[in-house]
Amino acid sequence: MLLHIPQVLTQQEIMKVRQIIDAADWADGSITAGTQSAKNKNNRQLPEDHPLTEEARQIVLRALSMNALYLTGALPKKIYPPLFNRYDGQQNSFGNHIDNSVRTHAATGRHVRTDVSCTLFLSEPEDYEGGELIIEDTYGSQAIKFAAGDMVLYPSSSVHRVEPVTSGSRIACFFWTESMIRPDEQRRLLYDLDMTIMQIRERYGDTPESIRLTGTYHNLLRMWADV
């Protein structure tokens, strides 16, 4: 499931995050790349243990904890601490790759299975040329270039890349989610069911039918969830 989540961050939160990370020292992006993806990765990244990374990270985590669409779409069990990258100048692209299946946080040794990949845009589309996130899914290639504050959520098993940035700077936050529901097909079914229930409740209120559907949703979640 590929999901566009608008306005994860407010304009004030975007400005605050940018003020924090724009003042930081950026490192070579290969510091978190796997063996295969390191050959294709040509960007810059804030070190995971940088104090400014942690300050900006907390803003993102607070916003995620209050975002109903993210919580419904990802059904998070664990979140790998958000990271920040930029593409500009000579470090401007990331070729085709698949994300590592498990990420281990260096400071804590905590393992996170990467079920869902997330990119939260921090630059406006008009601030840079190129830089589209290309995701290969069952419906073909999807080119993603959202407004600052918007996020895309997609299966970590997808082949994806970032096209070269030919001018300007593409700055984003990225992270992985271990979902309570491992199979993407089951997450999609639960998401569609939850969205349908909400639409029925908005139109007709709490009817006996909507209550039964809500029960079906939670019974499926109870059956499938790994918590």
Rank of each mutant, 00 (worst) to 15 (best):
F84Y: 10
F84S: 02
R86H: 06
Y87P: 02
Y87M: 04
Y87N: 09
G89A: 11
Q90D: 12
Q91G: 00
Q91L: 12
Q91E: 11
N92H: 14
F94K: 03
G95F: 12
G95H: 09
G95C: 12
G95V: 09
N96D: 15
H97E: 08
I98E: 13
I98V: 15
I98Q: 12
D99C: 12
D99M: 08
D99E: 15
S101T: 15
T104S: 11
H105G: 05
A106E: 14
A107R: 15
T108G: 05
R110S: 11
R110A: 15
R110Y: 04
H111E: 14
T114Y: 02
T114Q: 12
S117L: 03
S117H: 08
L120Q: 00
L120M: 06
F121D: 00
F121V: 01
L122Y: 05
L122M: 02
L122N: 03
E126I: 02
D127G: 07
D127T: 09
E129N: 05
E129D: 15
E129F: 07
E129M: 08
G130T: 07
G130Q: 04
G130S: 10
G131D: 00
G131T: 02
E132G: 04
E132S: 08
L133A: 11
L133C: 07
I134M: 11
I135E: 00
I135Y: 07
I135Q: 07
E136K: 11
E136M: 04
D137Y: 03
T138I: 01
T138A: 03
T138D: 12
Y139D: 14
Q142K: 10
A143P: 00
A143R: 13
I144K: 04
I144N: 05
K145C: 10
F146V: 10
A147G: 03
G149K: 08
V152I: 15
Y154L: 08
P155A: 05
S156V: 11
S156L: 06
S156G: 15
S157A: 15
S157F: 13
S157C: 11
S158H: 07
V159M: 10
V159K: 09
H160A: 11
H160P: 06
H160C: 10
R161I: 02
V162F: 05
V162D: 00
V162L: 04
V162Y: 05
E163R: 12
E163M: 13
P164R: 00
P164D: 04
V165N: 06
T166I: 03
S167E: 03
S167L: 05
G168P: 02
S169I: 14
R170D: 03
R170Y: 05
R170A: 09
I171P: 00
I171W: 03
C173A: 11
F174Q: 04
T177P: 06
T177D: 08
E178N: 00
S179P: 01
S179L: 10
M180Y: 12
I181S: 04
I181Q: 05
I181L: 04
R182S: 10
P183K: 04
P183Q: 02
D184K: 09
Q186N: 11
R188N: 09
R188E: 10
L189V: 13
L189G: 05
L189N: 09
